[in-house]
Structures are given as C-alpha cells and as structure tokens.
C-alpha cells in the first residue's frame, strides 16, 4: 500500500480504477466530451473511456476551451470520478469547478510513474492522501 500526498483543488472522497495518460492532455481535441473517451489519435489511451474512472495525467495543454469539454463530460453523464495531475492549471481548474469533479494535484512527484492504468486507488481529501489499494498486475 503506497500513499502519496495530494493538494485538494476540488474536494471529494473517491475510490476507483485509475486510467493514466503518460502524455500531457489537451481536453479540446483530446477528449470526446459527449462519449467520455480519449479522442487523441496519438495518445496511448486512444479510444479508451475515462467514465467513472480516476483520470491521471502529467499536465494539461491546449486551448482554454478545454474547460467547456470537461463540463460537457458531466452534462453527458460520462465524467471521470476524479482528476489527478502533477500540475494544476487554469483550464482544468475551471473545468473541474464547473463540472464539480474532484480534482487533486500531486506536488514534487510524477504521479503518472507511481500509478498505472488499472490500479485501484482512493483519495481522502481530509487527510490529503492518495492511496494505491491494489496494483493492476498484482
């Protein structure tokens, strides 16, 4: 069981399966806001769904319109359980607040190297911790 400290941007207590993008994500063009799947053809997660999962990515890039894409994930009932990143910036902060999706930042460590796709993780906003409950290959 591994524990990582997180900074709470939008609060919420969550537990679920992680889906990890190794590359920075552009929500505009990179995520389909209607279907909740990764649309970026260059992403290793292309075609995979982020619905009801904890979406982990190193940082976000691209147009600020990305915030509206995050909001539409919520409206279309395909939103992830939570968002976790190494670097919280304006696009995702705005999107997560509008959509009320719990959002956490991990400082000084690369979370995409600690958590892998398929791991079961839980985040406790009170204790400000992210815990890996079960590794995907164990």
């Amino acid at each position: 069981m591994k524990e990582v400290e997180v900074k709470v941007i939008v609060t919420g207590s969550v537990r679920g399966e992680a889906i990890v993008s190794k590359k920075p994500i552009s929500f505009l063009g990179g995520v389909d806001g209607k279907k909740g799947i990764i649309a970026d053809i260059q992403s290793e997660l292309h075609g995979k769904s982020i619905k009801d999962k904890i979406f982990v990515f190193p940082e976000s890039v691209g147009s600020t319109v990305g915030s509206y894409v995050i909001y539409s994930l919520k409206v279309n009932n395909v939103s992830p359980l939570a968002l976790v990143t190494n670097h919280a910036e304006t696009i995702v902060i705005a999107g997560a607040i509008l959509a009320e999706i719990p959002f956490f930042e991990v400082e000084n460590r690369d979370i995409t190297k600690i958590v892998s796709t398929g791991d079961i993780i839980s985040i406790d906003p009170e204790r400000r911790t992210l815990t890996i409950d079960k590794k995907s290959n164990s």
Partner: peptide, 12 residues
C-alpha cells in the same frame, strides 16, 4: 473551437 460543449455551460 467551442463546439457543442459550450451550450451545456450556457444552460447552467
């Protein structure tokens, strides 16, 4: 650039 995503935001 904004596509249909923006309409749900306007509704809110």
């Amino acid at each position: 650039t904004v596509g249909d995503a923006i309409f749900s935001f306007f509704d809110m």
